[in-house]
Design a protein around this nucleic acid. Structure first.
Lengths: 354, 354
DNA sequence: CTGAAAGCGCTTACAG
DNA sequence: CTGAAAGCGCTTACAG
């Protein structure tokens, strides 16, 4: 099964290589009989065009890169990245592209990655998943005119195309939910490591503002999105006697649950808890955990769609797409106080625009 | 920041493009002053070679592909793929390669993926993560002489290079552990969807054989590695009154735990449970779950190393690398019967070769 | 509608 | 040790 070239296929079909190229690429103005003859040879020989040669000649690789920076340590523990990647892969397949995955593990690799991406003609564009505030890649990409779409938010958000989920509204809904149930001492486990953490704290604050309440700083603890950090933050909060806690990531919420369990505090009788993120296996295993559900897979898909538009020279009008999230209420969060019979163990979705 | 070519760099340095090429590629026999002069121009101009052109000319893309077939639905819920990908990415970075990710979502996409990979010159080789018995890709790859390394085991295992974890021994250890604790009715939740499922059942059977015990078919239930399936399988087993259960995946184990909880059965007093796989967040959230830990990340890394060897024309002697696993004993599985004070909540590793 | 030809940016024998 | 030249397999104006 030797590799054929356009030239050879042309010879077999009795036409020039240019004509074969046109047939392969679906160029319209070709005499039908010629097209068929060529197509038959292609089918019979199983000819496949060399993608590298095509890319070189056309100055388009049809490869897009997905960059996962080293800051994103959660890659292992959090289904966030798998879901996102799934969506991106779906987008890539839909648009007949190839996906190159750049995972950065250390700071040295950051430099190396940038170098191997920029100016090498390998990728047409990038999707950058970086929610860290001190972002290394964006300035470089901007400087080199590398087309890209950012997932999440960063300091550069207003200069770039990005797609994100609505973290502010999500946290607002979560907090408001607890407020509306009458909880008085609503703590939060936040994070200040990244922009989504900031946004989620903003949502918490917004709900408090709406209810004319002020935030008690002693009821605010910080974690790093990791399970352990949720555990420690909760242990730190318990002495403050919160009657509810909004944990800004489900992974941390699982840690927090462990701390509550250790402290013999029952959920939701002694304390209500609301998480964020919807980690499939863990959350399903805790069917009581009320949480905010985000359309992560869709985020990835839309990021690709946006990048494709940019690459085709028809960038979208708006620089940002912010996807709605929803509050999924289950038994943990004061369902007992709401209506135990109706809600316990059930899933109730709240619309985003209340 | 216009894109420079070798030719232009050569002009600036007063040498031919061939010489610049040799400097860029670290060719040894070059007069030092020339090398320096060229290198300076490269540094000053920020010249980066066009990877596509290089690939075309050298017939080596330095891109390897990672294929995740549609059978692997667990991509979302299981940290297995993220961990593996992490290891592969580390291997790719270490070997100065680029990783192309091919995620297949449907059967139609399978064909499309094969076509876009095979005979297009895009990838030098592949890593195929397919543990399904009815594997679609392997025969095609074999037919087209595409170099590849398989992760896991399949019907073609003896014809291909592969790296895997030791599923048979892992399950053997898990089961033996329960047997050695004196449990009499040790059920299992197995799966017959893939080869690792077969291997894990074999390990279960091996341990029974070693103890001169026969397997009670009524204590064998099947799931699909999903959480729900674990739940249903456990519900099915409960009427058979097992006193222990070996669940061949932690995701299913979480489902099983839920079923036990619903049935008001306490772990480990009423029934002991041992899982498999070590899903970080979920398992950490259940610190009682004894499980088998596999070196997944390392599996990915070694797969890349193996592929690199194959591509360099020095394939490894053995066609398979099987990595050891370990039993991590925690409180759930009859630790109480062992030595509650010493083992409860602790992690005890058993070596693979007992 | 089709072909001859230039060109994409590199590598790599081949001379010297 | 270095350069001129052929070649990798495509695309794409340009003629006709």
């Amino acid at each position: 099964m030797k590799k054929l070239t356009l030239e050879e296929v042309g010879k077999l079909a009795g036409v020039s290589r240019a004509t074969v190229s046109r047939v392969v690429n679906g160029y319209p103005h070709i005499r039908p009989e010629i097209r068929e003859r060529v197509q038959r040879v292609i089918d019979e020989t199983g000819y496949r065009p060399n993608l590298l040669a095509r890319s070189l000649a056309s100055d388009r690789s049809n490869i897009i890169g997905l960059v996962i920076p080293s800051g994103a340590q959660a890659v292992f523990t959090d289904p966030y990245f798998p879901c996102l990647t799934q969506g991106i892969a779906r987008g890539v397949n839909t648009n007949n592209l190839t996906l190159a995955l750049f995972m950065v593990h250390s700071e040295q690799e950051e430099e190396r990655t940038i170098l191997s991406i920029l100016g090498t003609g390998l990728v047409d564009g990038l999707i950058v998943t970086s929610d860290n505030k001190g972002d290394v890649f964006i300035p470089e990409l901007l400087k080199h005119d590398m087309p890209f779409v950012q997932i999440g938010r960063s300091l550069y958000s207003n200069q770039v195309y990005r797609v994100d989920t609505d973290n502010v509204t999500g946290s607002y809904l979560a907090t408001k939910h607890l407020l509306s149930l009458g909880y008085q001492r609503i703590a939060t486990i936040a994070t200040n490591r990244n922009c989504s953490g900031d946004d989620r704290f903003t949502g918490y604050a917004n709900a408090f503002a709406e209810y004319g309440r002020t935030i008690d700083r002693r009821l605010v603890a910080y974690g790093d999105y990791g399970l352990e950090s949720g555990y420690h933050a909760m242990r730190q909060l318990i002495p403050q006697r919160p009657d509810a806690v909004f944990v800004t990531s489900d992974t941390m919420a699982l840690g927090a649950l462990r701390a509550l369990q250790e402290a013999q505090l029952r959920v939701p009788d002694d304390i209500a808890i609301v998480g964020y993120d919807d980690l499939p296996p863990a959350v399903q295993a805790n069917p009581q955990l009320t949480t905010i559900r985000q359309p992560i897979e869709q985020t990835g898909f839309l990021a690709v769609a946006t990048l494709v538009k940019i690459l085709s020279g028809e960038p979208p009008e708006s620089h940002e797409i912010v996807l709605p999230v929803e509050l999924v209420v289950r038994a943990s969060c004061g369902a007992v106080r709401m209506n135990a019979v109706e809600t316990a163990g059930q899933t109730v979705s709240y619309p985003v625009n209340p």
